[in-house]
Design a protein around this nucleic acid. Sequence first.
DNA 1: TTTATATAGTACTATTTTAGTACTATATTG
DNA 2: CAATATAGTACTAAAATAGTACTATATAAA
Lengths: 144, 144
Amino acid sequence: MLRVSKLTDYGTVILAHMAREPDRTYSAASLAQSIELPISTVSKLLKLLSRSGLLSSCRGKQGGYRLITPPQEISLAKVIEVLEGPVAVTECSRRRGLCQLESHCAIRQQWQGINAVIYQALEHISLETLLEKPRASEKRRVQI
Amino acid sequence: MLRVSKLTDYGTVILAHMAREPDRTYSAASLAQSIELPISTVSKLLKLLSRSGLLSSCRGKQGGYRLITPPQEISLAKVIEVLEGPVAVTECSRRRGLCQLESHCAIRQQWQGINAVIYQALEHISLETLLEKPRASEKRRVQI
DNA sequence: TTTATATAGTACTATTTTAGTACTATATTG
DNA sequence: CAATATAGTACTAAAATAGTACTATATAAA
């Protein structure tokens, strides 16, 4: 497990789609059609992304949503934070005092390390990166 | 977000506790007392860990649970897999065909990359590591 | 062999989170 | 003013998670 929610996943698909033509305005309806998801769901997500400052919106005819920031500046970490809150693998991995077990728990700091690794990995991927085909030869390595 | 479940978190605390004296046998009751969690919850987890082959069990007086494998050979990745199934950040990140959006989704491979990074980070931490105090100077770096 | 102890298994309930939907209000364009 | 598109809110349904209770079975020691 260790999942992002379906809605977050949809969110990245929506944003990646928009990132192909970053200066266009997309209506909820047209995105829903392109991605084949219910318009209500797409619409809900676009509202959230708009409130969080990732998208600008415009009502009325010719209205729709549009990326505010260039695709290379929007990371997966940002998208996840916007749609489901700060990345925190365990309750105690984000900050102290959230975990009842803390006093008996020698492992908080290790969870924080894991969390940092995950965060960095997510921060490293931008919407632009999402559109690239990954090179087969590419190295993937973690150092802790 | 991007969490492991509370139960998985408890599980790691239990196992880390057992790893301090890896050759001892621990009863569910004594573990529950040490960790200050309800015995029913601890018991449930121990059963799961036992069925999955991480612990051996023995009934009756002097019975209890015990680590089968040395603490340095049990990774967080393993514990998470045992308690909540394979690590998969998105439905499509583990294997093909689980995601309805696949044909419209250019980003599956990138999710798989993220997943690999997370997996490696989790695989790199063992029960033994969990007990160490992390060195302040330690580098944490991710390369994708 | 009996008793106390401890796990095995199962089934169930409650809670929380996630997902999905519906409806009304408001802004924009022509 | 009419058509279109987002804003906001509230709600329902479904799924996952967490927690509990109870019966069965194995073990060890008296």
